[in-house]
């Protein structure tokens, strides 16, 4: 009960700080502007009028989400604990009758809510543009996209927090997280590509590898939600649809959930084993 109150009080504090922070506002604006551009261009283009399935808008938004949301969530997580440590605030907080895991959970919840707000505002604006233009994606697709973006965001936030608790300095944490972002967005995919082309990995291995990447899982899940099948992803997608069918949802959920829980648990462990100053 006390824990809940502590977490709630600190989480609200973190949320307010985040909402007022420059990074939050800039990321939200960047996300919304890019999303709006994609929505506007694709809704204005011909041929996409009311065609169901993965509309061009959704596909474009998936790309924007994949680029911006992980970066935003990772750096938000990276900066939080490490910079508190640098400013002595972490020591001060922990000198109060507050458990370390409570502080970490509060940061997770507060920053997570800020990310939810950012995603909802950005995608809401996009949906409005598409609605006004009369076409493009379906409401269900947008809702799925928003929900899965939040899932991806909190997974990346958890990862950022882990880096932040382990790092000595905030700048180092942010640096590591930018590298992680780059790895997840580009290097992992290029690795998969190399696996497919150079190493001729069998499709079940490729799919298993893709399941390990939170970004790929997000993408596949978005496709699955709007298309009910993954066959647009070629042989690997067909294999996944045929083999797992409706269980794909559970599979994707499990993978993303692991990306939330494992880093968060490791972060709690790291924070409780390290000194607070």
């Amino acid at each position: 009960m006390t824990s809940f109150r502590n977490v709630a009080a600190l989480a609200r504090r973190e949320l307010r700080d985040a909402l007022a922070a420059r990074w939050f506002i800039l990321y939200t604006i960047a996300f919304a502007v890019l999303g709006l551009a994609v929505s506007y261009v694709s809704a204005a283009s011909a041929g996409d009028a009311g065609l169901s399935g993965l509309g061009r808008t959704t596909a474009g938004l998936v790309n924007i989400v994949l680029l911006i949301i992980p970066l935003m969530a990772l750096t938000a997580g990276a900066a939080s604990v490490a910079s508190d440590r640098e400013r002595g605030m972490l020591a001060y907080l922990l000198a109060l009758p507050v458990a370390r895991w409570e502080v970490l959970l509060a940061k997770f919840v507060g920053l997570g809510l800020a990310l939810v707000a950012s995603i909802c505002l950005g995608l809401g604006a996009c949906a409005a543009v598409v609605a006004v233009q009369g076409g493009g994606a379906s409401a269900g697709a947008i809702a799925w996209l928003a929900g899965l973006s939040v899932f991806l965001a909190i997974a990346m936030l958890a990862l950022g927090l882990l880096v932040s608790t382990a790092a000595r300095k905030a700048s180092a944490a942010v640096g590591v997280c930018i590298f992680l972002w780059f790895s997840l967005v580009f290097l992992t995919d290029l690795g998969l590509l190399a696996g497919a082309i150079a190493f001729r990995l069998p499709i079940e291995r490729l799919f298993a590898a893709a399941l390990g990447s939170p970004l790929q899982v997000f993408k596949m899940w978005t496709l699955l939600a709007s298309d009910a099948t993954l066959d647009v992803l070629g042989p690997v997608g067909v294999y996944a649809s045929e083999t797992f069918g409706g269980r794909l949802h559970a599979l994707f959920a499990a993978s993303l959930a692991a990306w939330v829980i494992v880093p968060l648990a490791l972060a709690v462990l790291t924070l409780s084993r390290r000194s607070a100053v």
């Binding site: 009311g50 949906a127 409401a139 947008i142």
Partner: peptide, 23 residues
């Protein structure tokens, strides 16, 4: 364009409103 326009702007607008409301 030979497209048939049967988009669902109404439900989309609803989605937009719901997302904006949450945010």
């Amino acid at each position: 364009v030979a497209a048939t326009k049967h988009g669902r702007p109404a439900s989309l607008a609803l989605a937009a409103a719901a997302l904006a409301a949450v945010g």
